[in-house]
Design a protein around this nucleic acid. Structure first.
Length: 485
RNA sequence: UCCUCUUUAGCUCAGUUGGUUAGAGCACCUGACUGUUAAUCAGGGGGUCCUUGGUUCAAGUCCAAGAAGGGGAGCCA
């Protein structure tokens, strides 16, 4: 029995980048397509290291034909041979095959992936196999690159990563509906004398939920380590069915002490530009593939409805400063805008204080400025309790970053560091002080101005990959009525 | 949750005014082919027309309810 594991192996990305060929190599990979004629067969091999396939060229004889007969799209194989300059067009190198070993067959009557374009909806239904598509392979590699870039950026800038809790008993931030975590028997709930559920019998001795944000805990860490960030899973039990929402998503939340809202905006803009530049520098092949895919997809659209070419769009973000305007300025622009005057908006902007709808954000980003926009200083009524009150007593130092095609990608603020003002805001918004004493302690002992934001990781990926739905940039999306795999 | 569209072969889709045995391309199987690039050419097999109920001599097609999915909105990241 030959031990195929012991052979000298390189991944396909490394092989295709070798400066010269004519060497013996071994490759483990999955078969994308097989093309066979009487005397020669071609296997397109992919091991996920790159979007590109390695072409194995196989001279057909009786013995090898019996192996080839068992190889179909999706099979995993070990192939040995000599890497040579390709005799055919379409690739620089190819593998002149001497040995084929099948690790695992893929029954073609059952294997759902074909060497053709599948719909995103179909791929979502076979999420366990869609890693093997060109598209999801590219997205997955870019997702990894962005995770890496984020940690890199913060590490290089003196931030410490903190793991904030995933299970939490505080329901303070009001960021959305929460998933409850319990070990109680739902068919036989313990009750108190007044008939309500007796959470003292629950695992933690009180009601607990999955986190909707690591921000409050990150603030605690920032009040000692100065610059921290979290990057973890976040859970929202909202019944939102959109291309931009998940029940389980990943969020980046930096928190910086001795920083104001301008520092916060600089940090966010710096992070976003670093990530996009990192993708341009490290994911060129995958971006190229995604770009071509979008162009093919939009070919039938009239020119005015087509989106900017992906790589051009990414460069545009890196090369241009984000527009920074206040909410008040945005309202003025919107009030005087054509769609507002001609009543094209579904929600007409009439007065200061109105919450901005998606259509307004899109107008500002996609029509008026045509680049990322940071909106600041929102009315306090439409923002969270912890945001720092401006001297006008009307607005808070919030900042939202709006991206073309995506909308809000970052939401952040300078935090209210004044104990009395913070307690005042909590009372106005009916947030229980008692349960939040640990949070308020930071304002009691050595309080300091500080700021932070939340960046939706999947929304960043939407922008970088040009995909249209967050369900296609996370391996196993969790959405209302969907928890497969 | 609201508005809207969709659901026909493994996949992508066509199916006329309600009318005989529901079609195509791809995939699969068989054969041909000396180098292909989602190979090509010829032939073949493959259907709970989303579900339930209704109208009708007759329903893939019309009506009602439901389910699943897409797009948009709200909420947000």
């Amino acid at each position: 029995m030959i031990n195929y594991m012991s052979s000298k192996k390189l991944n396909i990305k490394a092989l295709l980048n070798l400066p010269q060929a004519n060497i013996e190599v071994a490759v483990d990979a999955w078969v994308r397509t097989k093309r066979q004629s009487k005397n020669v067969a071609f296997l397109a091999l992919n091991d996920g290291s790159t979007i590109h396939n390695l072409q194995a060229v196989v001279d057909v004889d009786d013995q090898i034909e019996s192996i080839l007969d068992r190889i179909h799209t999706g099979a995993s194989v070990h192939v040995e041979g000599i890497l040579i300059p390709s005799e055919g067009k379409g690739q620089s190198y190819e593998l002149k095959t001497t040995t084929i070993h099948i690790w695992g067959e893929a029954n073609p009557d059952e294997y759902p992936l074909q060497p053709k374009k599948h719909s995103l909806e179909f791929l979502r239904e076979i999420a366990h196999l869609r890693f093997r598509s060109n598209l999801f392979g590219a997205v997955t590699r870019i997702r990894h690159a962005m995770i890496f870039a984020i940690h890199n950026y913060f590490n290089q800038n003196g931030f410490y990563n903190v793991h904030t809790p995933i299970i939490t008993a505080s329901d303070a931030e009001g960021a959305g509906e929460m998933f409850q975590v319990t070990t109680l028997d739902l068919n036989n709930l313990p009750k108190t004398e007044d008939g309500s559920i007796d959470y003292s019998k629950d695992f933690f001795g009180k009601s607990a939920n999955l986190t909707v944000s690591g921000q409050l805990e990150a603030e605690l860490a920032a009040m000692a380590l100065s610059k921290v960030y979290t990057f973890g899973p976040t859970f929202r039990a909202e019944n939102s069915n959109t291309s931009r929402h998940l029940a389980e998503f990943w969020m980046i939340e930096p928190e910086v002490a001795f920083a104001d809202i301008n520092d916060d905006m600089d940090l966010a803009e710096g992070l976003l530009k670093y990530c996009v530049q990192y993708a341009l520098d490290h994911c060129n092949d995958d971006l190229q593939f995604l770009s071509e895919r979008i162009i093919a997809e939009e070919k039938s659209l009239p020119e005015k409805d087509r989106s900017m070419e992906l790589i051009e769009k990414l460069k545009m973000v890196v090369d241009n400063d984000f527009v920074r305007i206040t909410y008040t300025e945005a309202i003025d622009i919107l009030k005087n805008s054509n769609p507002n005057k001609k009543k094209k908006f579904n929600y007409i902007i009439e007065a200061w204080g109105a919450d901005l709808q998606s259509e307004h954000e899109r107008y500002l980003v996609e029509k008026h400025f045509q680049k990322p926009v940071i909106l600041t200083d929102y009315p306090k009524e439409i923002k969270a309790f912890y945001m720092k009150l401006n001297e006008d007593n009307q607005t808070v130092r919030a900042m939202d970053i709006l991206f073309p095609g995506i909308g809000e990608i970052v939401g952040g603020s300078q935090r209210e560091e004044d104990y009395e003002k913070l307690v005042g805001r909590m009372r106005e918004m009916h947030i229980p002080e008692k349960e939040m004493s640990w949070y308020l302690d930071t304002r009691k002992f050595g309080s300091a101005p500080h700021a932070g934001f939340g960046l939706g990781f999947e929304r960043l990926l939407l922008f970088v990959t040009g995909m249209g739905n967050v369900r296609d940039v996370i391996a196993f999306p969790r959405t209302p009525k969907n928890c497969e795999f």
